[in-house]
Amino acid sequence: MTDSYEPRIIAFLCNWCTYTGADLAGTSRLQYPPNVRVVRMMCSGAVDPVYVLKPLLDGADGVLIGGCHPGDCHYQTGNYKTRRRYVAMREILKSTGLDDTRIWLRWISASEGQRFAETITEMVASLKELGPSPMRVAWAV
């Protein structure tokens, strides 16, 4: 199973920076693995920890939160709130027995298409290394 293991990633990207950066990766035709599914959020600060933890507990292999660089949040401080929540989310994940490196937080601006493509590529590699989520055992692939 591990040979054919393809990590399943959900990404919450803020509209103003990372989502736009992901679009730029597209218009620049930068290739990255198709393992990621994006949910467009207005701000990283609107990402409820439930959005992150629920899919991980249901067997997703990783969750990415993408927001504007510190100081650049379109709504001024959303990403600072996210940064604090991120620490808490990783703690909670750890307490459920899952590896806390399954949650990634990255600041990727609208002009960093390259960085977006690289982030997904890295995340897929890192999750392959980590192996499939133990929550997936119930699932047959």
């Binding site: 990766a25 597209g26 990255y32 393992n35």
Partner: peptide, 26 residues
């Protein structure tokens, strides 16, 4: 978004089509 965030960044194939399906489902 099945162009900028799908067809333009992935190779043709099942995984890419499946991604598009899920994005539509979402």
């Amino acid at each position: 978004n099945i162009r900028e965030q799908c067809s333009w960044v992935h190779p043709a194939g099942t995984m890419t089509t499946e991604k598009a399906m899920q994005l539509v489902e979402s």
